[in-house]
Design a protein around this nucleic acid. Sequence first.
DNA 1: CTGAAAGCGCTTACAG
DNA 2: CTGAAAGCGCTTACAG
Lengths: 314, 314
Amino acid sequence: MKIVEELDYKPNLIASALASRKTTKLAILIPRSISEESYWIKPLSGINNALQNYIQYGIEVKFFLFDFFNNKSFEEEGEKLLEWVPQGVIIAPLFYKESINLIGQLKNLSIPYLFIDTNIQDQEQLSFIGQDSFQSGYLSAKLLDICIPSSCSVLIINFSHRIDNPNHLHQREEGFRTYFEQNDPEHKKKLIPLALEDKEDEEFIENLSTLLAESKTIHGIFVTNSKVYRIARLLEKKDLRGIRLIGYDLLPKNTEFLKKGVIDFLINQRPEEQGYNALTTLFDHVVGRKTVEAINFTPIDIITKENIDYQKVF
Amino acid sequence: MKIVEELDYKPNLIASALASRKTTKLAILIPRSISEESYWIKPLSGINNALQNYIQYGIEVKFFLFDFFNNKSFEEEGEKLLEWVPQGVIIAPLFYKESINLIGQLKNLSIPYLFIDTNIQDQEQLSFIGQDSFQSGYLSAKLLDICIPSSCSVLIINFSHRIDNPNHLHQREEGFRTYFEQNDPEHKKKLIPLALEDKEDEEFIENLSTLLAESKTIHGIFVTNSKVYRIARLLEKKDLRGIRLIGYDLLPKNTEFLKKGVIDFLINQRPEEQGYNALTTLFDHVVGRKTVEAINFTPIDIITKENIDYQKVF
DNA sequence: CTGAAAGCGCTTACAG
DNA sequence: CTGAAAGCGCTTACAG
């Protein structure tokens, strides 16, 4: 080792990869995408993109895709994953209990894992790759705040798609509220929370539309997830102007309304980049034996119709 | 070739790199950074960062750094570059005439080159990597527009640092003006252009300060480059409130005023990423023999004090 | 011009 | 346990 240091010897990774020709198996446990327009297609394509860089190094990646709404499906795919015996795992731990169970087993097998999109604190994960949800809500509040009247009402809409909503939706709302507590201590702006079902609840939407039409004081709406296009559709249909709308993610349905001017801001969490970084991080650890960052926060992008066309596509 | 196709043969780049061990020389012609806080340190660090990925492939990178204000220096470094005989070049073509001259010689030698930061149209460059300046100005106007009164005055400040200012400063102003032409046809917002010298022109700054203090109608200032901190310093010193300020680039001096709330928005052009992508693109072309994109527009990031801490650092 | 041999810097099975 | 040999998939100098 003394000589290694004296000569500043650095092993040639290329020669090493060529000689060893071992294949490293990496498993990915994320939600299945229902359509081309689904959110989860983006992390997946980011992972595939990173894979191109490593394919020559004998990396084998296998996707275990579960049903976003079904914890049993998460469990089943987790079982399959364990049977495959990978050397490293990327997990979107959307179901708390089932995730804890799975990573317990991974720990026993000394298989490293990292979290993407959603974090669970202190689980000995190799890394977390995703956005700071609280801060993204805080930023959303600021953006809304600068373009609404100094006294008015603001709706916070939660599309609760299932009982144990991923934690980060609450954190986004918390961040949003915290901004107004700090910057509007006199509560000139009234925050009105609203929980909607994810299914096509026409009746509720109709009620909401009546509410919006009647209440002239509502000048801003914050939707805590990517379902913001549903509210946009309503605003457009009822021709409701003067209401600023902000939500998450560059789904085609959302960007369409952004370009039309119905949605004012979208918060992007760079899902492709999350996928890309997740695979790169796992590779660096498992194959490159490098130390990796324990937390890898994705930038919080502000997207308007003026810069949407310049976002990186993968 | 028929058999190649039948077997879907893909050459093993790793084995190829190991066997050939040829070193590829890539030259970089960009401005020298005066301090750790200079803008041009960022593309440089992005280039070095990308280099880490390729160092095993026998890439040798040499920087030819010229004086930002001095076209002779650009010429001299260009000469040295040609003597070194690289296989590929990255150029920031800040001086038009001198750039045209240099790339003429590169063409004769069949050495591929790509432009970073500033583009010159139709010069057979391999690629351009940088921001759409017009659009970034357009976006800046939109951001200012949503948070200033519906009738007021807006200053457009150009720090002209030399006679032949890089073209993109004009394009930024053009984009800015175009937004207001399209969205304020009645000219309720008055745009006032102002050219300042780059040197510490205390007298002019003093005049500007008087102007701002007297004119109560000025509610927005757009600075077309990274010198926005100089205006911020003035606003802070004179305790001038109610003026929204927007400019370019995440220099330490700028982010400081952003966090204090004196600057409202900064436009980021991801300089590190530009450097990173430039080297990657050049490598892909020269070593990987891949086809590369002719235009690689960097995203136009909107930075506020709420998301500044989540920007990627290289 | 063609084709076989040596070698790039490692890993790993194997002989001693 | 130690150390030399073979081989990973290419490139390139060289013999024919």
